[in-house]
Amino acid sequence: MREIFYSHAIREALEEEMARDERVILIGEDIAEYGGAFKITRDMAQRFGKERVRNTPISENGFVGVAVGAAMTGLRPVAELMFMDFLTLAMDQLCNHAAKFRYQYGDQVTIPLVLRCPAGAGRSYGPTHSQSLERWLMSTPGLLVAAPATAEDAKGMLKSAIRCDDPVVFIESKILYGQKQPVPEGEYTVPLGEATVRRGGEHVTLVAYSRMVGEALRAAEALAERGVEAEVVDLRTLAPLDMATVAASVERTGRAVVVEEGPLTGGVAAEVAQRITEECFDVLDAPPIRVAALDVPVPSSAVLEAAATPDWRKIAQGAAEALNY
């Protein structure tokens, strides 16, 4: 199977869906001539025209609102935030309009909107360009939240998101953009709302998503050198959350470590760990362990950033804590 960059897999999904369906449009800051902050949409304005690849003013609240209106009137917009941190400026349009209109108006409207969000730390971009804010979104009814860990899933899940009639927030780790991974050629999609097991094991379950899946797999390799077989579950979608796959794994292992890149308090890991406790209580040999970032703004210093965010070593330590309970 060929290998391409994660970022190129996203570009392929956009190009294929725009070629397949003329209702698909792209909007965002500097996405036309410049190709966006991370060059995902480079040359796409030349291929599809500026009517379908539109630059916007620096107003996230404005262009996400435009995307909601475009979705309501029959288009399938894909809006790009330069950084997920800027989501704060568009929360009203996203959470009070996009997420709720189908509930308010029933069959009168659909909101086939995708909001692409480059997210996460690891590049020393500092506290306002490095956040992971998905915990805010997964608790908003009406939103789907996707966070693919591989290039294959990034392409297939983005195609599914564009074809979905509900709003999807699509989280893309900036660190993953530059990684080459296998991606099938030809048409395929990956369904939203389905987790997958990336590595089998019998002693402890490591639950992760997005960039943290790779860190969990590294932790599993390190644990295997010490005779511990860790199973790695990739959530892939945070809303809806596929707890059936997680619970099946925990029933096999009896222990769980839940990993996220965002802060520890009130995060994705907290929700998943509590759901594991509720659904798997009788089979647990230890309480679920959370591994997450410190409850501090993401530092600009590379050394401090690494200290504040999770990695494979901290995940392995969490597994050891669960095993030694």
Rank of each mutant, 00 (worst) to 15 (best):
W136Q: 10
Y103F: 14
M91T: 14
R102M: 15
I58V: 15
G120K: 12
R47T: 15
H97K: 12
R135D: 12
A79K: 05
I111M: 14
L113W: 05
I111L: 13
L115D: 08
A79C: 05
C117L: 15
V109R: 04
N96I: 03
A71Q: 06
T150P: 01
R116P: 00
Q104Y: 12
E60R: 09
G142I: 10
Y125M: 13
D107R: 14
A119R: 06
A146W: 00
L143M: 08
K100E: 08
F101T: 07
A98I: 07
V114R: 05
P148N: 11
C95R: 07
H129V: 10
Q93W: 00
A79H: 07
Y125H: 13
Q108V: 13
T73G: 01
T88I: 04
L115Q: 08
A90Y: 01
Q108L: 12
G62C: 00
V78T: 05
R123G: 03
V109D: 07
G49E: 01
E152F: 11
V64L: 15
G74H: 12
Q131V: 09
R54F: 03
G120H: 06
T56I: 03
A70G: 05
E51R: 12
L113Q: 05
Q131T: 14
R116Y: 06
G142A: 09
Y103I: 06
S132E: 05
L113C: 04
T140P: 02
P148L: 11
S132W: 08
T140I: 15
R47S: 11
L137H: 10
L87V: 08
E80V: 03
V66F: 10
T140C: 15
T150L: 09
R135H: 14
T73S: 09
R123C: 02
Q104W: 12
V68I: 09
T128F: 14
L89K: 02
L144C: 08
R135I: 00
P141I: 10
P127Y: 04
G69Q: 13
Q104R: 15
C117M: 14
L133K: 01
L89N: 09
T88A: 11
V68F: 06
L89E: 08
N96P: 03
T88S: 10
W136F: 15
P118R: 07
T73E: 04
P148Q: 10
A99V: 06
D92G: 02
A147P: 01
R52M: 09
M84L: 12
G126N: 06
E80Y: 13
T110A: 14
A67Y: 09
A79R: 06
M82L: 12
A98D: 04
N55P: 00
N96G: 05
M72S: 11
G69C: 03
G126E: 03
D107L: 06
T150E: 09
R54V: 13
Y125P: 00
S124V: 07
R102Q: 15
A121P: 01
L94R: 05
T128C: 02
S139F: 01
V68W: 03
N55M: 01
R102H: 14
A121I: 01
E152V: 07
F48D: 01
A119K: 02
L94K: 07
K100W: 06
D153R: 14
G74R: 11
T56L: 00
G106W: 00
G126I: 07
T110D: 14
F48Y: 14
T88L: 08
A99C: 02
M82Q: 15
